[in-house]
Design a binder for these strands. Structure first.
Length: 865
RNA sequence: GCCGAAGUGGCGGAAUGGCAGACGCGGCGGACUUAAAAUCCGCUGCCCGUAAGGGCGUCAGGGUUCGAGUCCCUGCUUCGGCACCA
């Protein structure tokens, strides 16, 4: 770890007692000693335990996405959790019954990788990590309700994944299919489409480029909800996330059109090739047709003399990596298969080609190629000398104008040309009419296609939820009967050399009898994607140990949906999409009534390493909070992370400035315990700020405190934690100006201190609790937690100012400021302003043209010519 | 290429169309100290000026407005998402 100079100096401040003659008078702020004491006290009195059955207060379900138990909490975890905790405490002070649970996303590959290198069983590794992280979470002072904890690798959790699987199977929401799937060669596992990232198509976890494999796998029917997932009714989610999901789902409206294969010497014709297009208006411009190399009709339609070329092209395509195949930079390739199709609108024979730019997995795996109006088709036609025929023209363009580029965009007033009886109609209307006309002959129908695929949930790894299915030679695929759940993961699987799933080499697990016929059968060894675990865990938090159902319906009814969820934007199209799917699926199997899991969502940013890269052990840029906590205490770290900048922004970690926050807490400590202090270096001697007397000072103190209360309340509510801290610092700075003066310790002062502590309590829970308890003790009252106090009310009268300063501009340039009574009228104000020397000078003898009083009298602008 | 977010002092950042740079870091100066640290107080966007004061200034260029960091248009840069999706 790098140690900067300011860190070293601060170290001394924290560890070395002040060497002043009166060091004994006021006790030093010593967070490292006091914080654990309060954490223990809170646990003892059950401060964080939520009574889920309490009906006297409004419920508030606050969820922070649960972590993967990677071993150590790093500063990023603090960044994620701390503001959420502060917000929860803030809501609690408003009288809400806040439920803030935590758990662990405990299945997954890192545990396996650790197992392979160190020989420790994934369960042991995971549980050890969880133990560490529990301790670290407690050191943050987070108000998690540990009674609600969920650990997904425990049978009492994952058996319900299996239960859901069976229900989904019954409901037709789960199915098994052979498909070309994405395979990560490093992790030896298939991935869902969402888990393949970036232009290089790499594994989301390890960054290895994926390859395609044809495998029979289990899917959840996500596409069933495609349209519903596009609606974000009644939920308050950040626009960027909604956009990402919308784009991911990729709904596109168009038409499916049937091309019939023409008879020739080699085949009788009559096969139908369906294409999907969003541009039926360009149908007359279709001069050829392209099938994906994997298209099922390819083999059948290929002419004998083309067979060698076609086979070789198909073979080549399959060998290519996804990167090569999908690169847009690459020149188009393809071969004709020696058969023609008939364009249904004009009876023209168009040649059929295969080319890898047509994807088998989208639409129908075949396209009509309209080179005049599609860039890709244009490029292809150019390269292979295929005809290009314009069928849409912008107003004024001749029908036969030569084309240098595809004309794919839409222009106002464009019309169809070269399109038989549709020529002359607008492109829009023409397209509709062409589809109608073809539809009447059963040659077309309006269709919606989606980019999103069903969710591939099979994983060839042992550390996950076993998929509860048995394969029997006689009965085929047999679901494990519900009463036989859970299918337990064995504790003793061992990793072999080749990276294959060890469950395959575990006879006791593998060999079973068929639940139907009793004959020997084979158990499914694939496990579920860990995103299945994270798709419903917040329902389980409400009753983590219920053993006759996945959820406690009445509690879910009362507590769901989650009122506020906080988590990273990196989950936009994975976790957050799957979670929405799961909620809808759970609704459709009759388990719950909600349509959406999270009413409000906030995406916090990500803390990066000081090198600007994502924090990870392999990069060696992970920041260990334990050391920082040992030096400054949890409150300073909490506050510093909130103070860094807007929470949704994140950024590279830098401890520079942490000393400033520590200093602030020390000032709070001093203000609360030593209002009169005259230690060496403290302000000279009881001098009120210039121009103030005792009563104006008292008013000023109250005004500042109540104004701060107003803005700080808004900051918490709006998740503006950085300005919340700044405003509290301002309050402390103001109070410091009155420290040691006659008004220090007065009731007004005391009220300000009280408000300051209450406002700071959610963010810095330990120091405020400590100072609060001392206040109570001093007043001879029994202890009660500051975190059970009510959020204070703003005294608007106190907050109001009796004078205000009005900036004065001349032609938009600031020339003067005048201090006037708060209630002054515009006419009077103008008189005051025009009498000012500086304004006279700025006007230079000219008469004001207009005088503008900005909204609420905040500024005056004098306009002269 | 398409979609989205963002560009403000040396740094992190603040600013319902109304005083740009709050708050903090760093820097400079002062008090305290034998001294240093800590603490407290003050100054700290850039340029000219001893000063009073003036000029410039929120990625660049246009525009709307009495007034633009904020709204509109064009472009540049960075980050995130998607990427031959018909």
């Amino acid at each position: 770890m790098t140690t900067t100079r300011d860190q070293r100096t601060d170290t001394r401040s924290a560890e070395t007692p002040a060497r002043s003659p009166r060091a004994d008078r006021v006790e030093r702020y010593d967070p490292v000693a006091t914080e654990p004491r309060w954490q223990a006290k809170w646990a003892e009195v059950g401060l964080h335990h939520t009574d889920l059955h309490d009906k006297t207060r409004p419920k508030f379900y606050l969820l922070t996405m649960y972590p993967y138990p990677s071993g150590d909490l790093h500063i990023g975890h603090w960044y994620i959790v701390t503001p959420t905790d502060a917000f929860g405490r803030f809501r609690r002070m408003h009288g809400d019954n806040v439920f803030l649970p935590i758990g662990f996303d405990a299945f997954g590959l890192p545990a396996e990788n650790a197992a392979i290198t160190s020989g420790v069983h994934p369960r042991e590794w995971t549980m050890r990590n969880i133990e560490t992280m529990r301790r670290q979470f407690r050191s943050m002072g987070a108000t998690f309700d540990w009674d609600a904890e969920v650990v997904t690798s425990e049978p009492e959790y994952y058996r319900w994944n299996q239960w859901f699987f069976l229900k989904f199977l019954e409901a037709g929401l789960a199915y098994r299919a052979m498909a070309p799937v994405d395979w990560c060669p490093k992790d030896q596992v298939v991935l869902a489409r969402e888990q393949v990232e970036g232009p290089n198509r790499v594994c989301w976890r390890c960054g290895t480029p994926v390859i395609k494999r044809d495998l029979e796998q289990w899917f959840f029917r996500l596409t069933k909800y495609a349209d519903e997932l596009l609606a974000f009714d009644g939920i308050d989610w950040p626009e960027p996330i909604r956009l990402m999901q919308t784009n991911w789902i990729g709904r596109s409206e168009g038409a499916e059109i049937v091309f019939t294969v023409a008879p020739d010497d080699h085949q009788p014709g009559g096969d139908e090739v369906r294409v999907f297009t969003t541009r039926p208006d360009t149908l007359f411009g279709a001069t050829f047709m392209v099938l994906a190399p994997e298209h099922p009709l390819v083999a059948r339609l290929t002419a004998p003399d083309r067979k060698a070329a076609v086979d070789s092209y198909v073979y080549q395509t399959r060998r290519e990596t996804e990167i090569e195949r999908l690169s847009t930079e690459r020149e188009k390739t393809g071969v004709p298969i020696g058969a023609d199709a008939i364009n249904p609108v004009n009876g023209e024979r168009v040649p059929i080609w295969i080319a890898d730019y047509v994807l088998a997995s989208y639409g129908t795996g075949a396209i009509m190629a309209v080179p005049a109006h599609d860039e890709r088709d244009f490029e292809f036609a150019r390269k292979f000398g295929l005809p290009i025929r314009r069928v849409v023209a912008a107003p004024g363009t001749p029908d036969d104008a030569p084309m240098d580029d595809a004309y794919a965009a839409h222009t106002e007033g464009e019309i169809l040309v070269n399109s038989g009886r549709f020529s002359g109609t607008s492109a829009d209307e023409g397209g509709r009419k062409i589809v109608e006309w073809l539809a009447s002959q059963d040659k077309a129908r309006p269709t919606v296609t989606y980019r999103v695929r069903d969710w591939l949930i099979s994983r060839q790894r042992p550390w996950g939820t076993p998929i509860p299915v048995i394969y029997c030679d006689r009965d085929g695929i047999v679901p494990v009967p519900e009463e036989q759940l859970p299918v337990l993961l064995p504790d003793d699987f061992v990793y072999g050399a080749k990276g294959e799933n060890p469950l395959l080499n575990h006879p006791e697990f593998l060999n079973v009898t068929c639940p139907r016929c009793g004959e020997p059968a084979r158990r499914e060894t694939d496990t579920m994607d860990t995103f299945v675990d994270s798709s419903w865990y917040w329902y389980r938090y409400l009753s983590p140990h219920t053993n006759d159902a996945p959820i406690d319906k009445p509690l879910v009814e009362r507590w769901c949906p989650v009122d506020q969820c906080t988590g990273g934007a990196e989950h936009a199209v994975m976790h957050l999409l799957y979670s929405r799917f799961f909620t809808k699926a759970m609704r459709d199997i009759g388990l719950i009534h909600e349509d959406e899991p999270f009413r409000r969502l906030f995406n916090q940013g990500q803390i990066l390493g000081s090198d600007g890269e994502r924090m990870s052990k392999s990069r060696g840029n992970v920041q260990d909070p334990d050391a920082l906590v040992g030096r400054y205490g949890a409150d300073t770290i909490r506050l510093f992370l909130m103070f860094m900048g807007p929470w949704d922004q994140g950024g590279p970690w830098s401890p520079t400035g942490i000393g400033g926050v520590f200093r602030f807490l020390n000032r709070v400590w001093t203000l609360a315990l030593d209002p009169h202090g005259q230690e060496p270096g403290d302000p000279a001697s009881g001098q009120l700020p210039e121009g103030e007397d005792e009563s104006s000072a008292r008013r000023a103190i109250r005004a500042t405190a109540h104004r701060t209360l107003k803005v700080v309340s808004g900051d918490y509510t709006g998740f503006r934690f950085n300005t919340m801290v700044a405003h509290l610092m301002e309050l402390a700075n103001t109070l410091f100006r009155y420290r040691g003066t006659v008004v220090a310790g007065d009731p007004e002062w005391d009220e300000a201190i009280r408000l300051m502590l209450l406002m700071l309590a959610p963010a810095a829970p330990h120091i405020t609790e400590e100072l609060w308890s001392r206040r109570l003790a001093e007043a001879g009252e029994d202890w009660s937690s500051i975190h059970s106090e009510e959020w204070p009310m703003v005294d608007e009268t106190a907050a109001a100012a009796d004078t205000r300063e009005v900036p004065v501009q001349v032609n938009g340039k600031l020339r003067d400021r005048v201090v006037v009574p708060a209630g002054i009228g515009e006419i009077e104000l103008e008189q005051v302003i025009l009498a000012r020397d500086r304004i006279h000078a700025a006007l230079g003898g000219r008469e004001p043209d207009r005088v503008i009083h900005a909204s609420g009298g905040r500024l005056v602008n004098i306009v002269v010519r």
